[in-house]
Structures are given as C-alpha cells and as structure tokens.
Design a protein around this nucleic acid. Structure first.
Lengths: 268, 268
DNA sequence: AGCCGCTGTGAAAAATCGGTGAAAAATAGA
DNA sequence: TCTATTTTTCACCGATTTTTCACAGCGGCT
C-alpha cells in the first residue's frame, strides 16, 4: 500500500487528481490518500502521526492561500520528522524562484508544473520514480533468495541446503557440502513439486548434455540425496524409509520420473 | 568538480545549454562537460571510461537522429557500467509515452521538457537536486572509502589492503604492493560476501573482457591473494590452511566460483 | 514358475575440478 | 625502444564428482 500525504488548498485540483491517485497502481496494493487543505492542518496531522509509520511520499503545493511559504513550512515539518521522506511539489509556478527554492533549499525530490499536458499521468509516473528511488536507498543490502518447502530450505545465495535446521552434507564425506549436481537437482524437484520430473526434463533444466545424463545417473543422484537426508536424521535410513512410504523423494510411475513430496504435510 | 556526461544531437541545444552548464556552480569547483553527438559515440565513450571514475550525472535526449530509442540504448549502457549514476532526460516530448518509458522502464532520475520557461535555470536546479540525492545514497553505503570485513580493511583511496593491521604485499616481491587485479578481485569478493562469484561474474564486475578472463586466470589470482595473506601471517601457509578449512577465500564447488568467508567468525 | 521392466545398490571407471609451477603474452614505465 | 611487472596460458597432479556397469529385489504378467 502506497500512502500519500497531500496538502492542497484548491478543491478543483483535489477533484482532478484524487481519483487518479487513488486508482493508480503504485505497488500492487490500494493506496491510502491523506488530503489536508491547510498548512496548519498538515502540521497537526504530522505531529499526530506515529514516527514509525511515515507516509511513502508527500505532495505539496508551495504557495497556498496566498502565502508563498506555506508549502515550505510543511516541508520543514515533514523533513524534521522523516528526513528521508520524498517530497514532491505540485505547483502552478514552474521555472520560477519557487521551483528553485523547492529544489535547492528544501531538497524537493521533484517539482511538477500543474499546467502541463497530461499532468495526471506525469504525476503518477513521477511518484513511482520517487518511490523507486526511496526503496533503492533502503534495499541496498537486502535481497535474500531462498527456496522453501516445509522443513527444507535452500539458500540460493550460499547454496546451502538445510533440512530441519541442519545443513545437508555430502554423504560420502560429512565434512564436505552437498555436491553441485545433487543440490541443483533437489532444487528443481522442489520447485516443480508436485509435478514429477523425468531424467530428460532434469537434464534440460540443469542445462546438462542430454546424451550424457542418463536415467542411471539420475538414480545415483537421488541416492546421494536420500543419504544426505538420512545423515541429518541422525539414525539409520529414516529418510529412505520415508521415501518408501511415499513421502520425500519418491518415484513416479513411468519414464523414471521422481517427485518431491514435502514430508509430514499430510500424515503428520 | 561536477563531471557531466551529455548526449545531444542538435547543435542549437548544445549552444543554448553548454555555457550555462559550464558556468553554473554545482559544487564549488569548475565543471567538466563531455558532449557526444551520437548514441554510438556515447557508447564508445562509456566503454573507454574507467569504471572507477564515473561521471557525476548524465544528460540524455531520448529521441535522437529520428530514433525514439537512441537515448535509451545509451541509458542501458550507462546503467550497466554505473548502476547508481543519476540519469536526467532532456526532451521535447514531455507528458508523452517517452516520458513514461524514461521514468518507469529506464529508471530516469528526472525528465525535463526542453520547451519551458527558463529551461536553463530549471536544468541547473534539477542537476543539483540529482547530485544531492546521489551523494545521499553514497553517504549511506560507504561513509568513508573503506571496505571492511573483520580483520580485513580495503582503503579505496590508496587501494591499500590491510589484514590484521598489516599491509598485504605482492607475494612475488614483498616490497611491492598487491597487483591491481587481485586487489580488485578481493574487493568484489568481500563486497558480495556471502555470495560466491564465478569467473564470469568477476569479469563482468571488473569490466574485463569475458573472453580473456578465464577460470584459469581466476584461480591464479586467488592463489596470489592467498599467498599475500600467508605472507602477513608470518609463518608458512597459515592462511591457505584456513582456506582448506572453509574460511577466508574458499571455493564453492560449482562453475568455478569463489567466496569470501570472514575468518575467525566461529572457530576464533 | 519364468520372464519381463522398473528401482535400488555397490564398486569401479571416467570426467571434472582446484591447486600448482613455469613460461608465454600483454601491459606499463622509463 | 627496451625493461620491469602484471596477467594469461599451459601442462600436470591429486582429489572430488559424475557416470557407467553389473547385479539384486520386487511386482506384474503369461
């Protein structure tokens, strides 16, 4: 939900823009629009709003009720509370001293002339641009890629695979990680669950030479995977047993296909 | 010094704006203005420019020489090399599909209509706003020009690399500094930790010819780095040993990727 | 029972990977 | 231009991964 904080004293602009702003899809969710008619009302609203739930973007008119500075006082209040909030000016006075002040003095993110062709659209485009810019700032570090299925977690960054919180290791050497091919294979199985995959389909997805990747190899990798799971299940062949009962990594009828069926889901 | 990268095919606009852009005080120092007349020339210029000395801001015209996409191809090239470079469009077609594309598809920082009152001034104000925004972003990430990871410090000004306070030297000659490529490579590894990097990814990030930078070279540079660390660890092969135990610079058994894992984290 | 085809298995062969030194090629500096 | 340095290539080795092979168990079918 994009929340927009808008201060505008002239009702005809409100009539013109509010339907567009409410309807426009900024982030896939419906928007919340807060409209204030006076600078003073805006400042009160700011004071009353929780510091931890700032609006996503603010729209201000620089000149309101005959006062050139009205918008700027609101800007100052906004900046004081939420220094990183993008502020966009909507004004009838582009190319003037007001625009200069907004951009230079008051660190406006943007300044939009109300009198221009297709303003409503332009406004939406520029709000989107401001939102994107703001998210860039915060996202910098983020982006964690994970594939998840029940007790199984595949970290696509480090390629570690976890089962019930423990790391799946190479069954032929418990100090080494799971080998690349079994790992990728598991990922494909999990991702295409509940659809089974034949050897040919796997070869295709992993970009392996279809001539080389035989059904026998596939079986071998499946064995490796089951043993890796077994190793985590401390005991002996617990996971393999599970597979025989139709959960985990199970065969699927013809053409030598296998299928990932998240265990415990149904028979728990 | 604000360096401006400007692509414009019509000389009357160049005549109109260049004096203003040269004279305007963006950051207290004289500006450097690079003007290209064609998209192709611009792409060449980009390719030839050092990745570590990007321009401060780019000005593009979306439509050049009758081609609506010309500016966008330049934009793509710029973004690929310098993802955080602010790009401002200067266009005769505001409020149109071109503006939408620029702002939404091509992540333009701003879009300025050439035909408006007081354009030269508006342009300067908005460049300043873009520069301010960009500096905000960088302040956020790397306050100082130092990359840090545990006992490792990379000073991006002098390009010195320190490990446990000692400077990493060239293993083939202890009186010389670490060679450029291993140094940059280390930086990329540290920055993208805990994500492994394949040879191709490294080539891409360091802007090397992907044809030339083979996995064999990558291995060689890794060797150089490990030895550089070893040299600091006074003794013999201490760091290399660490790597074998899964810390420091470790392989990542797939597609010849390596990964920086800050040592000492667990087994300290 | 006897004969399939399908899976699971261990062991061994084959291919690949990662580390290495040495040398060739490219690049930078004087 | 010539030299010093960096970067890439090459050939080799041991370790690891992947594939192949041969066989066993388990139904279903005639």
């Amino acid at each position: 939900m994009a929340s927009i904080f808008w201060v505008e004293d002239q009702s005809h602009w409100i009539k013109k823009f509010s339907p567009v702003l409410e309807r426009e899809d900024f982030d896939g969710k419906p928007n919340s629009l807060t409209i204030l008619n006076f600078a003073e009302a805006a400042r009160q609203k700011i004071a009353l709003t929780d510091k931890d739930s700032p609006p996503d973007v603010a729209l201000l008119d620089a000149r309101m009720n005959g006062n050139d500075q009205a918008g700027f006082t609101v800007s100052t209040a906004l900046r004081k509370k939420w220094p990183r909030l993008p502020i966009i000016y909507l004004s009838e006075h582009s190319g003037t001293e007001i625009e200069r002040e907004a951009l230079e003095q008051f660190s406006a993110q943007d300044f939009i002339a109300k009198h221009q062709h297709n303003v409503e659209q332009v406004l939406c485009w520029r709000i989107k641009a401001a939102l994107r810019q703001a998210s860039l700032d915060t996202d910098l570090t983020a982006t964690v890629n994970v594939v998840n299925s029940g007790d199984l977690t595949i970290d696509l960054n480090t390629w570690n695979v976890y089962w019930k919180g423990q790391r799946l290791m190479n069954p032929s050497n418990a100090r080494r990680p799971l080998a690349p091919t079994p790992r990728k294979l598991l990922r494909e199985l999990v991702q295409s669950s509940p659809r089974p995959l034949t050897a040919i389909q796997i070869a295709d997805r992993l970009d392996l030479d279809p001539e080389k990747f035989s059904y026998a190899s596939y079986r071998q990798h499946i064995k490796t995977l089951r043993r890796a799971f077994d190793a985590v299940e401390d005991g002996e062949g617990r996971f393999t047993e599970l597979c025989n009962n139709g959960e985990g990594i199970v065969t699927f009828g013809d053409e030598g296909a296998y299928l990932w069926k998240p265990p415990g889901g149904k028979s728990a």
